[in-house]
Lab assay of single mutants.
Amino acid sequence: IRCIGVSNRDFVEGMSGGTWVDVVLEHGGCVTVMAQDKPTVDIELVTTTVSNMAEVRSYCYEASISDMASDSRCPTQGEAYLDKQSDTQYVCKRTLVDRGWGNGCGLFGKGSLVTCAKFTCSKKMTGKSIQPENLEYRIMLSVHGSQHSGMIVNDTGYETDENRAKVEVTPNSPRAEATLGGFGSLGLDCEPRTGLDFSDLYYLTMNNKHWLVHKEWFHDIPLPWHAGADTGTPHWNNKEALVEFKDAHAKRQTVVVLGSQEGAVHTALAGALEAEMDGAKGKLFSGHLKCRLKMDKLRLKGVSYSLCTAAFTFTKVPAETLHGTVTVEVQYAGTDGPCKIPVQMAVDMQTLTPVGRLITANPVITESTENSKMMLELDPPFGDSYIVIGVGDKKITHHWHRSGSTIGKAFEATVRGAKRMAVLGDTAWDFGSVGGVFNSLGKGIHQIFGAAFKSLFGGMSWFSQILIGTLLVWLGLNTKNGSISLTCLALGGVMIFLSTAVSA
């Protein structure tokens, strides 16, 4: 259960009878995928790494000078000259100064003066180019299975845990398959586009800190620079940016070097996208990844198990997540596992009318040892309800109150669905055939309105939902006002479609 501690969480529900669903994975976010007769899966884009970055340009932001020398000439005696002028490691300046009897010249006039100092770069920052084909995306998957609280967001041991898996995709191999043991396998067909235009970005490294910066900004930095990788004795261009020549006297000129420019660069980098280094690879934390999940090989585990009949206890007080759902960790005293956990939410304890829904599909106890633990997640209705676990006299209950409203949740879900469709863009549509167009249209309606429909009408039977949709269509056909007619027709059509397409 990876997503319960992530604030940016998206719930995606598969269409009834569908074998695939489109998701948008982004750094700092987590996606929970639910479908009829399929286990619930949490998917998170953990890291995006980039390798084989080529150094484009380096800037010196802290330097020192040494070996200063000057040469001067009297008027009419030609130009002052130093051998160091031809050495690229030196920074030199030529000027004219007033000369006369007082400073060793027989004539009054302008004399030539040249001053040089050896330039040494102490600290530099480097910009590297990123090729999209060198990106690698690491995705962690977790099935809502027989897990306890100690396994949440624990990325170790996934090789031997059938509840978890790690997959890596690249532009050259965008397809992967996550093996989930008894739950089958989940196929991923990803489109490795981060949403960032790397043709316009460089990877900047300064003092063990890293950013993504725009090329134009990078090339306009007014500091000494050299092109390409460091060859040991780089040729620094624009050395004068960190060196200041003071007022010249008759035979000498003082040279000083400016202080470190790291603070000024940090100020200019305010708002830039931060990154990290992992050995020789860069780690990015921006952008998104679009994936199509193929769920035809994914299956529920323990459908044929019998119900657990022994007593359950709450190991922890049920807690609310950031998303309005409830996490419950229970301990089973029996030894008759594997068995299914009898769990439901009810409005009252007399009729036990089921409300809400299970995020953890078909929760089971897989071990036959005593005191096995299991964590599950529920989506309670707004208002008061009861969490009921167990059967008969051994069942345990917990009162729950959820604040908020169904309308607010439906609106929030619609906005999130619209954002998801905007990110998917043209990849969500198939114009290759008439059937493809209608299929894409259905998927689009489901992406945007599916979660809201589930919130508003999830407790009704599909037949009642179709009746309401048919009534809206009838009202649309018999209303003389054009805008009201079109609105009723659209709402009725969407409702009829979703009542037959969205899983219960």
Rank of each mutant, 00 (worst) to 15 (best):
L477H: 07
V24R: 03
G111C: 07
W429V: 04
L188P: 08
E216L: 02
T335V: 12
G145N: 09
A451E: 15
H446D: 09
T95E: 09
D379W: 04
S368V: 12
G302E: 09
R9K: 11
A319K: 04
K301Y: 13
E162A: 15
R57H: 04
S149I: 13
L135D: 03
P234L: 15
G493Y: 01
T205S: 15
F198R: 00
E133Q: 10
F218I: 12
G271P: 11
S142T: 14
G127M: 10
I396K: 06
S7A: 14
I152E: 03
G28R: 04
K215C: 05
D10A: 02
T353F: 15
Q261V: 11
M295W: 12
S372N: 07
D278I: 15
F312P: 03
R292T: 04
F449Y: 11
M125L: 14
A504D: 09
W101R: 09
V317S: 14
G182V: 01
L298N: 04
P380F: 13
A501C: 13
P338V: 05
T115L: 02
A413R: 01
A178S: 11
L204M: 06
S306A: 15
D22H: 06
F438N: 01
N237Q: 15
A250I: 06
F119H: 10
K409F: 10
D71I: 07
L307E: 12
F453M: 10
C74R: 09
P171T: 10
V317P: 15
G232M: 09
E177N: 08
K84F: 08
V343W: 10
D22S: 02
G14N: 07
F312I: 12
D98H: 07
D98M: 12
F497N: 12
H27W: 07
L472C: 14
L186T: 01
G459F: 04
G150V: 00
N103L: 01
V153Q: 05
N478Q: 15
V328I: 15
S7Q: 15
T88D: 04
D336H: 12
L107R: 07
I496T: 05
L180I: 14
E177Y: 08
S385P: 14
S499L: 01
K251R: 03
D247C: 07
V24N: 07
K373A: 13
F449I: 06
M345V: 15
G263R: 10
M277C: 03
G102P: 02
T47I: 09
K93W: 12
P75N: 08
V473G: 02
H219L: 15
N52S: 12
S70C: 10
D10Q: 02
T205M: 13
L113R: 00
Y61C: 12
L322D: 05
Y305V: 01
S70F: 07
G109H: 08
L498N: 10
S72V: 03
L204W: 11
Y305P: 02
T335K: 12
G442E: 08
T233W: 06
K419W: 08
S403A: 09
V114W: 05
L498R: 02
A241M: 10
G337C: 11
S86W: 03
V343M: 08
T231R: 09
V330W: 09
K124V: 11
K38Q: 07
K239F: 07
K480N: 14
A333H: 11
V169G: 00
T325Q: 09
D247G: 10
C121P: 02
S86Y: 08
V473H: 04
T88G: 01
K251S: 01
F11T: 02
T315S: 13
G356A: 02
V153I: 14
K123Q: 15
A69K: 02
H323D: 09
K297A: 14
N207P: 02
N8A: 05
L196M: 03
E276L: 01
L472V: 14
L188K: 06
T327A: 10
F438Y: 01
S306I: 01
T315K: 01
N172A: 02
K419N: 00
F245L: 09
S142H: 02
I152L: 04
G17Y: 05
E168M: 04
G392A: 15
R138G: 05
I1T: 15
M34K: 09
F463E: 03
F453D: 06
K128T: 11
D278W: 00
F11K: 05
N134V: 05
N362Q: 10
S485T: 15
V23Q: 08
V330G: 03
H401M: 12
H401W: 14
Q261G: 08
L322Q: 11
E62N: 10
A176G: 15
P234W: 11
A311K: 12
D161K: 00
V31R: 00
G282I: 13
F198L: 15
G18V: 00
V169S: 02
M68Q: 04
A69T: 13
Q131L: 14
L491N: 06
K128S: 04
G184S: 02
R299P: 05
V169W: 07
Q447G: 14
K38P: 00
R416T: 08
G182E: 03
V328P: 01
G492C: 03
M68I: 15
S70N: 10
C92S: 10
T351Q: 15
L196C: 10
G17R: 02
G469F: 08
G232K: 07
I365D: 04
H148P: 10
L242E: 06
A451C: 08
V355Q: 01
N439S: 14
K283S: 12
V347R: 08
P39R: 02
P381Y: 04
L489I: 14
S483I: 07
G104S: 12
L298W: 06
M295G: 02
V23E: 03
R57A: 12
T351K: 04
K316E: 13
A80C: 09
I466M: 08
Y202W: 09
Q331A: 09
T427F: 12
G271D: 09
G78V: 04
T32W: 09
A280Y: 14
K246M: 09
N154P: 04
H226R: 04
F285Y: 12
K215P: 15
D426W: 13
T233C: 02
N439C: 14
K340N: 06
I484Q: 10
Y81S: 10
R73A: 08
A333Q: 01
G150A: 15
L201K: 00
V255P: 08
T351I: 07
V50F: 14
